[in-house]
């Protein structure tokens, strides 16, 4: 390797060097060992990088920036596409708050009465078609579960599950004793071979697998699931 070539490569001397292959690195090192001029330039390059690097990184971060960012984020909808209609956003946030209210209820720290929540929820009229339209606007068009009573719907969200965006519906009974969360999994996005229809996984939060017109609904629930669902001939 000649001096000219070496000087083109000096920038790599102290880098991760993933751009140079092993023979190039070896040739470079060999040349620097026997050529004092290039070695001096390499040393100057190193010092320059250190001085400039330290200066470039020396920026004082304003105190209080992190909580400021978090506070701003809390006022923004999550996972909502670029152009949410203001109304849709308002409903989304209202329903999110309802979900939070129910969650608090379950933690035995009732801040809001269920009747209040119910009254508010009834105003929103989230029936099946509104839910499907909302999910379609969120970029996850699916057929929402047909076996639930949508008067019990509390929350529609898009969850991230195994790297995919999936619809998540939360239902709660009027008395707050039954709560269910439904993830709608599409066979186009997941291999669902192990999830048999009717499968029940008991636990503090029970899980039921329900095949529904091509999709698989994974239902996490507590309490009496039947209280959240439609009567068969309703």
């Amino acid at each position: 390797m000649e001096c000219h070539d070496v000087r083109q490569l000096l920038a790599f001397v102290d880098r991760k060097c993933e751009e140079l292959d092993a023979p190039e690195r070896a040739a470079l090192a060999q040349h620097l060992e026997r050529c004092p001029e290039c070695a001096a330039l390499a040393q100057a390059e190193r010092e320059f990088d250190q001085a400039l690097g330290a200066a470039v990184r020396a920026v004082a971060v304003p105190p209080g920036l992190q909580p400021k960012i978090l506070a701003k984020l809390a006022t923004q909808p999550r996972g909502t596409p670029w152009k949410p209609l203001a109304a849709a956003a308002a409903i989304f946030i209202a329903v999110t708050l309802l979900g939070a209210g129910i969650a608090w209820k379950l933690r035995d720290t009732p801040a809001v009465s269920v009747a209040d929540i119910r009254a508010l929820a009834d105003q929103e009229n989230w029936d099946l078609s509104v839910v499907e339209q909302h999910l379609s606007e969120q970029g996850v068009p699916v057929e929402a579960p047909r076996d639930f009573d949508y008067r019990n719907l509390q929350h529609v969200d898009v969850a991230e599950f195994r790297g995919q965006r999936v619809p998540k519906l939360t239902f709660a009974s009027r008395d707050g004793k039954a709560v269910a969360c439904v993830l709608v999994l599409s066979p186009a996005r997941f291999r669902l071979g192990d999830l048999h229809d009717g499968m029940e996984l008991p636990g503090t939060t029970s899980i039921r697998i329900h095949h529904d017109r091509g999709h698989v609904n994974v239902i996490f629930y507590r309490g009496d699931l039947g209280a959240l669902q439609r009567l068969p001939d309703q």
């Binding site: 920036l65 999550r78 909502t80």
Partner: peptide, 17 residues
């Protein structure tokens, strides 16, 4: 810089998926 940082996280939140 503060606005850009703020904006970056707001965008990230909506595109996190």
């Amino acid at each position: 810089a503060e606005d850009l940082t703020q904006e970056t996280f707001c965008l990230a939140q909506t595109k996190l998926f």
